[in-house]
Design a protein around this nucleic acid. Structure first.
Length: 663
RNA sequence: GCCUGGGUAGCUCAGUCGGCAGAGCAACGCACUCGUAAUGCGUAGGUCAGGAGUUCGAUUCUCCUCCCAGGCUCCA
């Protein structure tokens, strides 16, 4: 047995260490600071505890707490401490799973006697956790056989289920909880041992920068037919500073919450009298919508779309034909029965209507592709627990279009559509995107595998030419079609699913759509579904959060406010106001009833793009003092003509697109 | 739909161990006429989400319903 081993460091250099040296000891040999920051070690590509000895020839990398991997270890270990705290406070509690997640961790519990956590329990759990951390308990790893594991967790049915599930069919999601091929456990003390693959920090003393966030219900293994467990979410970081920064980011997100901004800026509301998930748009919100819709209409006109309209209700038969009643009846408002038993439904989708427009007369290949666009209002019965501001509603307006084309045209259509989508989203100031390809769902689907394969391939090929990251969403498609969705990142790095593009062979079949080809035979068209905003309401919500309410000038409900310094400046202020109004700018005037500072403050809170102050100097020189939203200090003495020209250009919105308009 | 928490003036929130309901901002009125983020004074504003129960008495305690938030499930 050699007295020394070789380990290979990430930069390729080898280091001789005494045989049996552990990861933690290696870190200490390299440097004190590294040893202090280390939480785990990667050995030959696998994360391990610092306490495990290194073998000869091991390729190693010390994992420090301030990396994503390191934080995951901290969080997972903190979840164990939370579980231990819960056993202290509720002996006999059962444990399910407790993984690290983005920004934190959670652990699912079942308390004895069907008891539930309340918010105030979080404080007690927090206190018990800090005690355990203060006790400097080691995380001691052990490997057991499946039989011994089942024995050890005899009183933990969820743990036994995990062990049995992984033993029979390795499930990557659960394997993280137990290890593959056997059972690994971590013991902190006689009081607490948990099933876990690891790795963990060497001791609980290594933890402490955490905060328990909230209590929630969560179904065991995500299945609403299984027991509902009590989940506690927490966040944990490598330092008090990092924790503080995270909490600050949460506050920032709250400040940008579109529901708060919607009320503060008087854009929209959700009156209880109307019902959950049903918004009304106030004049200012209505103006923003109008600006969005006008712009979208212009772009679609340039893009060769034709405008169609369809009613909000229809006989049941239409959705029987489309298949929606079969698949989504639960998500639709219940029918109203009229005219001797005829059932009518509020529409959850626009596509069947567009199919009927296609079918209204015989179609020739010469007409294709036909691109029908509609701002279609749809109604979906969302469960009461899921409605959320403008992003998840029961009534919304889709910027919906359906393209009917030949199979040969399909690839090029998708390709140009993707360009069209991204150009449009860029008009709204979004610039970071990735694409997601959702494939055939395992359970709910219609059509043959060949058709699904062809449609999916067409989407995949188009997506791969876009020079954007493409993520696979296995089984995430709709029952009738695969889809590409465009995900956009907002100003604080959150991703939103916006546009979707679906290639659909099924609905043309169900509606028996046909066109006459150049061979004088009848053919079935392909249908492409697409919505770019998703819904106008939701997209407005996303934009509000992206811009923190400070919408670009062209989208702002009010673009300019004129403030006379004193009453006797009012005539000139009115002249300034009407100069902007004549130039098509949305402008108002706040008279000198209050001190200037108060009026400036109010305009700032309303997030107006431009506040123009006019006083003695301006009246004589025909100038204004310009206070723009981004600027630190006002600019005095700007010529009226110049500022009207500048702001009206900005207010007109994105340039007309350079793309050739299509027939 | 399920779990946890919540609903007091238009908004943000105090408060009531069961005994006439409070503040700031906003609104309205009067005065102030002012050069870049809050002028002063005054007035009005509430079925304490709704209903039932316990009680001499309920905004407060109990139950039910509605709504909201955060999760879970769902999301064509």
């Amino acid at each position: 047995m050699a007295a020394e081993s070789n380990v290979i460091l990430p930069d390729g250099t080898e280091r001789r260490v005494p045989h049996g040296t552990t990861g933690g000891e290696l870190a200490a040999l390299i440097g004190r600071r590294l040893a202090g920051a280390a939480v785990a070690i990667e050995v030959d590509g696998e994360l391990r505890d610092l306490g495990r000895p290194l073998h000869d020839g091991a390729k190693v990398r010390i994992v420090t707490a301030d990396t994503d991997e390191g934080r995951a270890v901290l969080r997972h270990s903190t979840a164990h401490v939370m579980a231990q705290a819960v056993t202290r406070l509720w002996p006999g509690a059962r444990f399910a799973i407790g993984p690290s997640i983005a920004d934190g961790f959670y652990y699912d519990f079942e308390l004895p006697g069907g008891r539930h956590f309340s918010d105030s329990d979080l404080e007690r759990i927090d206190a018990a956790m800090r005690e355990i951390i203060g006790e400097d308990q080691p995380f001691v790893r052990d490997e057991l056989s499946v039989e011994d594991g089942l024995e050890l967790f005899a009183r933990q049915p969820y743990k036994r289920e995990i062990i049995e599930a992984v033993a029979s069919a390795p499930d990557p999601e659960l394997a993280g909880e137990t290890g593959i091929g056997g059972v690994t456990t971590y013991r902190n003390s006689e009081e607490f041992v948990d099933l876990c693959r690891g790795p963990h920090v060497p001791s609980t003393a290594r933890l402490g920068h955490f905060k328990l966030m909230r209590v929630a219900g969560a179904y065991w293994r995500g299945d609403e037919h299984r027991p509902q467990l009590q989940r506690i979410y927490g966040t944990a970081w490598e330092s008090e500073k990092a924790l503080g920064e995270h909490l600050h980011r949460l506050e920032e997100a709250e400040r940008r919450d579109h529901r708060r901004l919607g009320a503060e800026l008087d854009l929209f509301s959700f009156p209880n009298e109307i019902g959950s998930g049903l918004a009304v748009f106030h004049p200012r919100g209505g103006m923003v919508r109008k600006a969005m819709e006008d712009h979208a209409r212009r772009r679609h006109e340039e893009g060769g779309y034709e405008f169609v309209y369809s009613p909000h209700i229809t006989k049941a038969e239409l959705f029987e034909t489309s298949g929606h009643l079969q698949w989504y009846a639960e998500g639709m408002f219940p029918p109203m029965t009229l005219d001797e038993g005829q059932q009518y439904y509020l529409k959850p989708m626009n596509c069947p209507f567009h199919c009927l427009i296609f079918k209204s007369r015989q179609r020739s290949y010469r007409e294709l592709p036909i691109r029908m666009f509609e701002f279609g209002s749809v109604y979906r019965y969302e469960l009461s627990g899921v409605v959320h501001g403008l992003t998840r509603v029961r009534g919304m307006t889709q910027d919906d279009a359906h393209i009917y084309c030949t199979r040969e045209q399909m690839a090029e259509e998708i390709q140009s559509l993707l360009t069209f989508v991204l150009d449009l989203l860029r008009d709204y100031g979004l610039s970071e995107f990735y694409l997601e390809l959702s494939t055939k769902p395992e359970e709910k689907s219609i059509g043959t595998d060949e058709e699904w394969e062809e449609a999916t391939e067409a989407l995949r090929r188009a997506a791969s030419t876009m020079d954007l990251e493409l993520v696979l969403d296995e089984g995430g498609g709709a029952f009738y079609a695969p889809k590409i969705s465009v995900q956009a990142k907002d100003a604080i790095g959150r991703s939103w699913q916006l546009s979707t593009i679906q290639v659909d062979f099924m609905l043309p079949q169900r509606f028996a759509l046909e066109y006459v080809g150049d061979d004088n035979a009848r053919h079935r068209p392909v249908m492409i579904h697409r919505a770019l905003f998703g819904s106008v309401e939701r997209f407005l919500g996303v934009l509000l959060e992206h811009y923190a309410g400070a919408l670009p000038t062209w989208l702002s409900p009010l673009q300019v406010r004129v403030l006379p310094v004193r009453d006797d400046h009012a005539p000139y202020a009115e002249e300034v106001r009407s100069a902007f109004a004549d130039a098509g700018v949305r402008v108002d005037l706040d008279p000198a009833k209050e001190p200037l500072g108060a009026r400036i403050r109010r305009a700032k809170l309303e997030k107006l793009p431009y506040v123009l102050v006019v006083g003695d100097d301006d009246v004589s020189a025909r100038t204004v003092g310009v206070n723009d939203r981004g600027g630190e200090r006002p600019v005095r003495g700007v010529s009226l003509d110049d500022i009207v020209a500048r702001i009206s250009a900005e207010a007109a919105g994105p340039e007309r697109s350079g793309r050739a308009s299509r027939p």
